[in-house]
Each structure stands twice: as structure tokens, then as C-alpha cells.
């Protein structure tokens, strides 16, 4: 009997990997550092997901239940992997809680870390209470408390969403696009307009990247049905006078400086590499991508392969990914992991 697979991280990718292994009749150990499974959508309290429109707690909650009830998945919470030694087919993983597991392969589904808006002080987060992030607004909606200005609890009459906060910005060393935040913002704008029909929502963008089916369903719909306004401007500065916030920048389409009052400003925060990646790299002996995500060995050979044989990677651990893609990658990486244990691993074309 081949050994179980170690899956590190219980977000959408890890849950999908464990489920994929179980459905192929293969045992797995799922190690999660937090006290709950579900990853970012659950831990950060996302509201309705793109593109299913399902509440995160229902959609991802369903994946969690499926994993927790499976007899072939051992779930270990509140733990990390401290050491990972051995050779493909024959690894030993020692956890921070003192337990150890003999496993045949590992899949890293350790995900991402939300960009911390404090690192863009010019946009007012941390200085003005009514400057918030997309995760905070997701929580306002998912908790049922509604969208309100944190300073005094009033319902905003005008909201600005600033795109690409913590993405596409050399000043802070982030050269990637976080892929999902345009669509998440369009979705959020519609949710705000639905909840507060008198509240006008403006989205400040450099490009709109609502790829594939997200174009009609989010970008177009937000304009056509919800009258969300999009302004091509990268905001230079957010200031405030204690009553209102002022968004300053250049409206590039009319070549005019703007200083517009708002009640609430939302940062569409991006996806950073997981802060644990240096440690993960050392423990698992895997190379990192130049931007700090976990590196893939190649794009078209063995799905999810890393620089170390027997260790695979999937989901937002690789780079900014959607939930759908994280799930698909995790299923593919599970196939690679199981194939590696059966000795049928194909070699990448040189």
C-alpha cells in the first residue's frame, strides 16, 4: 500500500486536493495552521463569490464538510510542518504539534497573504477610519451588518473603489496583477448599489481585467444594470477633513486634475505571496518564484511540480489565482502526486 499524501493548507486548493485524493481511494493528511478549514474565503469572511454568486460560507463550507467527513482524510488543525525529510515515496513530515506522518508525496496549497494597505500610506488606510479594504467590505456584507462608514456608522452616499492596491506597483515591489480584484470590485459595487440604491459607486482603474465570462457578468452588468461609474485614474492621494475623504488624482480621459469628496474609500487589495513562503521553501526544499510565490518547475510537463521531486504545489501559493483555478490546479497536482507514487510519472519534454 502506498503512503498517504501530505497536503499543507486547508483553503479551496487544499480542500480540493484532499477530496480528489479521497475520490481516487488515496489517503491524505491535511495540515492547516489555523483553527478552521476553508482558507481565505472563510478566514476573511468573503460574501458572495465570483462567479457562482454563492455565499462563501455555503460554497466553501460545503467543501470543508466533505473533507471533514471523509474517512480517508486526516485533518490536523493548528499545526505547521516543521521538518520534511526523505525521498519521493518515502518522506517523513514532523509537525509543530509534535506529531509525525510518513507520507509518499506532498502538495503545498498554502495560498497567499492579503496585501497590507498600510504599505501604501498615501491612500489613507490606517490614517482615516473610512478608508477600508475589500476584505472589510466583504465582512460588512457577509456578517449582515451592512455597508457603513466605520467612523460614525453612517451609510455612505458615495463610495470610491481604488483598484490595484498592492498590485502592479514597482514602488512596492509588486509587479503582478492580482487577477481577481477587478471582478471582485465590480461585484462589490453591485452589492453596495443593491443594498444602498442612493449610494453612488465609482471605480478608479488603470485597466479593467474582468477576463473571460467575467466581462459581461460583472463589468458590463455593473455599468448597465447598476450604473457603476469607472474612471481611468490611478489615485495619487487620499486625504480627509474629518468629515469627508478627498480622492485626488488625474482623470486621464479629460486630462483634468480631480479632488472629489467621498464618504468611503475601498482599497481593492491584491494577493501577496504567503508570508510563510521563506520558511516553507526551507522546510520543503523548494525554490521560490522571483516574486516570492512558490515556484513551479515547468508549465506544461508535470502539473504542479516544484523544484523538489515528490513535492507539488497548487492554488494561490503559485501566484494570484481564482478559486476555480485553484481547485483545478489542486486536482491536477493530486493526480501528479498519486502518479508519482505509482511510478508512472512522465518526464517533461526537453
Amino acid at each position: 500500500m502506498t503512503k498517504p499524501i501530505l497536503i499543507v493548507g486547508g483553503g479551496p486548493a487544499g480542500l480540493a486536493a484532499a477530496h480528489a485524493a479521497a475520490s481516487l481511494g488515496h489517503a491524505s493528511v491535511l495540515v492547516e495552521k489555523m483553527d478552521r478549514l476553508g482558507g481565505a474565503p472563510i478566514l476573511s469572511g468573503y460574501a458572495k463569490l465570483v462567479p457562482s454568486h454563492e455565499w462563501a460560507k455555503d460554497a466553501i463550507g460545503g467543501m470543508v464538510t466533505r473533507v471533514e467527513q471523509s474517512p480517508s482524510i486526516a485533518v490536523v488543525k493548528n499545526a505547521k510542518v516543521k521538518a520534511f525529510e526523505g525521498t519521493p515515496g518515502n518522506f517523513r513530515a514532523t509537525l509543530t504539534n509534535g506529531e509525525a506522518y510518513d507520507v509518499g508525496a506532498a502538495i503545498l496549497t498554502t495560498g497567499f497573504t492579503h496585501f497590507d494597505s498600510i504599505n501604501k500610506p498615501e491612500w489613507g488606510f490606517g490614517t482615516f477610519p473610512d478608508v477600508v479594504t475589500t476584505t472589510q467590505v466583504e465582512q460588512m456584507i457577509s456578517s449582515g451588518k451592512g455597508v457603513k462608514c466605520p467612523s460614525d456608522g453612517r451609510k455612505p452616499k458615495r463610495v470610491a473603489i481604488l483598484l490595484c492596491v498592492g498590485s502592479r506597483d514597482r514602488q512596492i515591489g509588486r509587479e503582478w496583477c492580482s487577477k481577481i480584484c477587478c471582478t471582485v470590485s465590480a461585484n462589490m459595487a453591485m452589492e453596495i448599489r443593491e443594498e444602498l440604491p442612493d449610494c453612488h459607486v465609482y471605480i478608479y482603474y488603470m485597466d479593467i481585467r474582468t477576463f473571460g465570462h467575467y466581462e459581461a457578468e460583472y463589468y458590463w452588468k455593473s455599468q448597465e444594470e447598476f450604473k457603476v461609474k469607472y474612471i481611468k485614474a490611478r489615485i495619487a492621494e487620499v486625504t480627509g477633513d474629518g468629515k469627508q475623504l478627498f480622492v485626488k488624482g488625474e482623470d486621464t480621459l479629460v486630462k483634468r486634475p480631480i479632488t472629489i469628496p467621498f464618504d468611503m474609500v475601498v482599497h481593492a487589495i491584491g494577493m501577496d505571496p504567503n508570508v510563510d513562503n521563506m520558511t516553507l521553501s526551507a522546510v520543503f526544499g523548494v525554490d521560490l518564484h522571483k516574486h516570492g510565490f512558490i515556484g513551479r518547475k515547468d508549465a506544461y510537463g508535470v502539473m504542479g511540480a516544484t523544484s523538489r521531486a515528490g513535492v507539488f504545489v497548487a492554488g494561490a501559493a503559485i501566484g494570484p489565482e481564482t478559486i476555480d483555478d485553484s481547485i483545478a490546479q489542486a486536482s491536477a497536482a493530486t493526480m501528479s502526486a498519486i502518479a508519482s507514487l505509482r511510478g508512472t510519472i512522465p518526464q517533461a519534454v526537453e
Binding site: Q223, E224, K227, K229, R256, P257, I258, T259, I260, P261
Partner: peptide, 26 residues
């Protein structure tokens, strides 16, 4: 200064309410 200091949210609504203006917000 050429700085724009506010948006007038009525304008789009007004022109959108006249025949022909219905789809301007797209």
C-alpha cells in the same frame, strides 16, 4: 486651477431620462 472638485450625479440621470439617452451609462 482646472481641478474638478465634484461630480454632478444628476446630469447622467437627466440625459438618460430623455429619448435616446437611455443607454449612456454603458
Amino acid at each position: 486651477s482646472r481641478a474638478v472638485t465634484d461630480y454632478n450625479e444628476e446630469l447622467q440621470e437627466e440625459i438618460g431620462a430623455l429619448p435616446g439617452g437611455e443607454f449612456i451609462h454603458r
